[in-house]
Amino acid sequence: MHVLLVEDDPSMRAALQRTLDRRGFAVDACGDGREALARWQARPPDVLVLDLTLPGLDGLDVLRQGRQAGLATPVLLLTARGTVGDRVLGLNAGADDYLPKPFDLDELEARVRALGRRRSTPRDQAGTSELRMGALRLDRDSGAVYSGDAVLELTPRESALLQALMARPGHALTKERLFELVFPGDQDVQYEAVEVVVYRLRKKLAGTGVNLMTLRGLGYLIKAA
């Protein structure tokens, strides 16, 4: 699993890189926000581990600009900012998870692996890396979603939910199954969180020729309008 580690403190960056290397990850590391964004765009990793306080470009700005460019990499925020407001800002900017400092290295590994599993959905029987429906096109290799030629700005959780549904068009997936795919390993999250992701994704699909439908008692499905 390829991890891009962005941490401005040299000693912590070196320690985290050594730890992740020893645990089987292929780690690239840097300590500057602008360099991090350039590396992310040039070679999207499987997981981005991103500190919020960075020189050059703040971590939240790195995250926002990456998402605006269509980068769907799962992002784990490392933050010393302990307030709920700061964590909400990060999640709203497109982060998938956060880990407040100081943290346990075993927990860091577990969260990185959980995010990495989000990118490992099997390909369909035709072996294609691309899914299409209506005006939507989903590139499974990069995680990017297009409406026509334009990148559809989705959070990784929205992208994970859309990919799961597009892999089985016309078939309902239960809330429980979608929860496993969208929130892997997130034991503190309730099943109702899936409804929030569905609500946000449904609004973003308006005008794409694809409808996200709720089937009471069965779950959710998508189909061409």
Rank of each mutant, 00 (worst) to 15 (best):
T208V: 09
P100C: 01
L136G: 00
E176K: 12
A172D: 05
S129P: 09
Y146E: 04
K101M: 10
Q190T: 14
R132T: 15
L154V: 01
E153C: 01
P156L: 07
R117P: 03
L89Q: 02
R200C: 00
L131E: 06
G94K: 01
D97A: 01
V194P: 09
R118W: 08
E153W: 05
R118D: 10
R168V: 14
L115M: 10
L115D: 08
R111D: 07
R113V: 05
E192N: 09
E192K: 14
D104I: 09
E192M: 09
M213W: 11
S159E: 13
L115C: 10
V194T: 13
Q190S: 15
R200Y: 10
R200S: 08
A164Q: 00
L136D: 04
D124S: 15
D141M: 11
A160D: 09
R117D: 08
L136A: 02
Q190A: 15
L161K: 05
L154K: 00
A93Y: 01
A110V: 13
R137I: 06
R200T: 03
L161S: 00
H171E: 15
G148D: 07
S120W: 09
P100L: 02
H171G: 10
Y220K: 06
R140C: 05
L205A: 08
R118I: 12
L162W: 09
Y191T: 10
R117M: 06
M133Q: 06
Q125R: 15
G219T: 11
A206N: 12
L152C: 01
R137M: 04
R111Y: 09
Q125C: 11
V197E: 08
E153T: 09
L178G: 03
P156R: 04
L105R: 10
Y191N: 08
D188A: 15
A167R: 00
D186H: 12
R87E: 04
D86M: 03
L138R: 02
A114F: 06
L205Q: 05
E107P: 08
Y98H: 02
V182I: 09
R137D: 05
Q163S: 08
T174P: 07
D106L: 12
D141C: 08
E158G: 02
T128H: 13
L162M: 07
G85D: 14
L108K: 06
L152F: 04
Y146P: 02
G185T: 14
G90N: 01
G116K: 01
G207R: 14
Q187I: 10
P169R: 08
R118K: 15
V88G: 02
R177D: 11
V145R: 02
P156F: 06
D104V: 13
D86A: 05
G185A: 11
L136Y: 03
G148Q: 08
A126I: 04
